[in-house]
Design a protein around this nucleic acid. Structure first.
Lengths: 351, 351
DNA sequence: CCATGCGCTGGAAGCGCTCTCAGTGCCGTG
DNA sequence: CACGGCACTGAGAGCGCTTCCAGCGCATGG
C-alpha cells in the first residue's frame, strides 16, 4: 500500500485547512510566525489526513538528510564475535534519535566494498559519518575524508593520510593498560606477561605501549602477540607457559583473550590468582563475569563512546551550519576535537 | 565540503557531453536505447565530473528509495549480549548490498520509540522493512502492517493482529529441540530436564514444545523457566538440582543458558557428560566452543536467516512492481511465504 | 525515387517540498 | 482621519531527477 492511497501531500493538507502550502510547511516545521488559530487548523488537518512529510522532497531543497552513516569494517568474522559494536551502535542510536536522525549502516567486507562505501558517502546521502577504523592500513579514513563528509572515528585511526587531523573517540587504552599492569605489580607480581591484541589495530598497540610504560625493561619473551580472540589467547598462553614457566601474572589485551588464557592456565594446573594473576580489558560483562574465576579487568564505557561519537558529529554539523557549508577543510575541520575516555579497573577474583 | 563545490548535476554532465539531460539520465540508468558513441561520451563526462546522482531527487520521482529498514526491538540489554543480531545483520547487509539497497537501522527502546518507528515506516522513507519481533506482546508487527510497508519478520511473530498472514523467517525451533532431546534420550538418559528461554518469545515456546513432543509425560518439575541468559541458566540449574537431584540430562534453550547451567553443575560436583549430559541451542561459536566441556548443541544458520529475510523482502518488492503498488493487502500480500530453516545437531563433549 | 516506420534524442512537465518576496490587513501614530 | 509600519499569509520559483511525448533522421519497402 505504500502508494495505494497516495500519501497526502502538503497541497492536500493546505486545501483541507484552507490555507496555502507555505503556511502548512511553516506549521509542520515548528509553526514560527503563524497565528494560533491557523496553526490549530493546520494541525488538525495534518492529523486527520495522517500527513507525513516526504523526506525526499524535503532533502532535495534543504540539502539535509537527517541521516548519518555508520561504517563498520568487518574484514574478519571476529568483529561480530563480541558485543562491542552492538553496544556502540546502541549508544549511537540513542544520540541519533535524540537528534531526529536516521542511522544508515554500512557493513564493508572486502576491498571491493570500499569503493561502494566511498561512492555512497560522496553521494551526499547522509549528513555525516561515523567510521570504525580498526586497522592501520584501513583505507576508510582517507576515503571518508576525501568524500568530504564530516566524520568522526571510533577508535584512534591509523596512519592513513589526512588522518592526523581526524576527530575520534577512543578509550584511554594506554592508561588503562598501565593501570592493569600496575595493579598486578602492586600485587607483588614480578614476572608479568602480556598477550597483545591484533597489532594491526591501534588499540592493541596502545595497550602494549601502556604495558611497556610500567614494565620498562621487560623480558621480551613475556610479550606474545594475540588477536583479541579466545583461541588466540589460548595459543599465546601456551607459548608463554612454555617459554617462561615462572611467570606469575598475565595482562591480556581483552577479556576474550583472557578467557582463553584462563582456560589454558587451568588445564595446566595453574591456580588463578594464586599462581598466576590475570587481568583483562573491556569488562565485557557476559565474558568477564562468567569466566572462572571472574575476571579482574579494565572497564571502558563502550555505549558512551558511541553516544559521544554521534554527539561530536552533530556538533561539527552545527558548526557547518545547515546548508551554508563554507568549510573547505576535510571532515570536521576546526570543530570539536577528539575525546579519550577514561577507563577504570574492576576488581574481581582473577587478580 | 558537502556542498562547497556543489556536486555536479545532470545538467552539468549533459552540457559537458553535449547532450540533453534526458539522455544522460538514460545512460546513468543503464543506457538502454542510447547509441553507443553517445553512451561513451556521457560516461566520460560523468567520470570527469565525478557525477553521482542525487538520490533525493531520484526518489522524489521514482518513489523508490533503495533502502530497507531493519527494526530491532531491544527492550533488554540482553539482546546485545549475544552475537545473534550481529550475525543476522551481516546476512541482511550482504543481500541488501547485492540489491544496491541501504540498510537503515532502527533500534527501538521503550514504548515511546514505537511511535517513532511507526511514523518512520509510514513516512515512506524505505521500500520495505525487516522486523525482529521477539515478544508476543510486541506491537511492532501490527505497526509495520499498518504502515503498509512490505515487511518480513525475523522469527515467527507472536499473536498480534494481522500477524497470522505475516511472512517470516525462522529456524525450526521445535524440530531442533526434538532432535536435541532425542539425542539425550538416545544416550540412555531418562530424567531429562529443560531450562526454557524467556517464554514471552516464540522461539522459547517452540523449543519447549519440541521438548514436550519427545518427553511426553515429563515430570513438570523438570521444566524450569530461564531467560536466555547465563545468569538465568545458573538460577534454573540450581533450582533443578534442588528439586530433582536425580536428573541426568539438561536441554537448555540456548547456549548462553547452557553455559550458566554448566557452571553450576561443575560447582556442585556433577561431571558433564558422565553424570549429567547437556545440550544447548544456537551453536553460537564463541560460547559453545569455549565452555568446559565444549557444548553439544543445535546449530542454526543465523547469517543465512538474515540473508533470506532480505531476499524474501526483495521478492515481495518485485511482485509489487516498482511504483505500481496495486496490492492493497497488508505487508507482503500474496507474495513469498515464510521459511523455516532446518537445524542440525552438533556433537561436542557435553552430551 | 518517395512514403512508411522505427529508433533515437530532446523538450518539458512535474515529483513534494522550502523559502523568498510581494501583498494583505491591521495596528499605532501624527 | 489618513498614513507608515508591522505581522502574517500566499504565490511562485525552483531543488535534481525521471519520463512522456513529439520530432527528427535513417533504413527499408514499394
Amino acid at each position: 500500500m505504500t502508494e495505494t492511497a497516495p500519501r497526502p501531500t502538503l497541497e492536500a493538507v493546505a486545501a483541507r485547512a484552507g490555507v496555502s502550502r507555505a503556511t502548512v510547511s511553516r506549521v509542520v516545521n515548528g509553526g514560527q510566525g503563524v497565528r494560533e488559530p491557523l496553526v490549530e487548523r493546520v494541525r488538525r488537518a495534518v492529523e486527520e489526513l495522517g500527513y507525513v512529510p516526504n523526506q525526499a522532497a524535503r532533502s532535495l531543497v534543504t540539502k539535509r538528510h537527517d541521516a548519518v552513516a555508520v561504517v563498520i569494517a568487518e574484514p574478519e568474522t571476529r568483529v561480530f564475535a563480541d558485543p562491542f559494536f552492538a553496544l556502540q551502535l546502541r549508544g549511537i542510536s540513542k544520540e541519533l534519535t535524540a537528534h531526529d536522525s536516521q542511522l544508515v549502516l554500512l557493513l564493508t567486507g572486502g576491498r571491493a566494498d570500499h569503493a561502494r562505501v566511498g561512492r555512497y558517502l560522496a553521494g551526499g546521502h547522509v549528513d555525516g559519518a561515523l567510521v570504525f577504523s580498526l586497522h592501520f592500513d584501513d583505507p576508510l579514513p582517507e576515503l571518508a575524508q576525501r568524500a568530504g563528509v564530516p566524520t568522526v572515528f571510533g577508535g584512534r585511526p591509523g596512519w592513513g593520510e589526512g588522518t592526523r587531523s581526524a576527530v575520534y573517540v577512543d578509550s584511554d587504552n594506554r592508561g588503562g593498560a598501565r593501570d592493569a599492569v600496575r595493579h598486578l605489580v602492586g600485587l607483588g607480581r614480578g614476572r608479568v606477561a602480556h598477550i597483545t591484541g591484533a597489532l594491526g589495530q591501534t588499540s592493541a598497540v596502545d595497550r602494549l605501549d601502556g604495558f611497556r610504560d610500567v614494565m620498562v625493561d621487560v623480558d621480551p619473551r613475556l610479550i606474545v602477540e594475540g588477536d583479541f580472540t579466545p583461541a588466540g589467547g589460548e595459543r599465546a598462553m601456551r607459548l608463554l607457559l612454555e617459554r617462561c614457566p615462572d611467570l606469575d601474572a598475565v595482562f591480556a589485551a581483552n577479556d576474550l583473550t583472557a578467557s582463553g588464557a584462563l582456560r589454558v592456565l587451568r588445564a595446566q594446573g595453574r591456580r588463578v590468582p594464586e599462581d598466576v594473576a590475570v587481568v583483562g580489558f573491556d569488562d565485557m560483562l557476559p565474558v568477564a563475569e562468567q569466566t572462572d574465576p571472574p575476571l579482574t579487568t579494565i572497564r571502558q564505557d563502550i555505549e558512551e563512546m558511541g553516544r559521544l561519537m554521534a554527539s561530536l558529529l552533530f556538533r561539527a554539523l552545527e558548526r557547518r551550519g545547515g546548508g551554508s557549508y563554507r568549510d573547505a577543510g576535510s571532515g570536521v575541520g576546526g570543530g570539536p576535537s577528539s575525546v579519550v575516555l577514561p577507563t577504570t579497573l574492576v576488581r574481581r577474583a582473577s587478580a
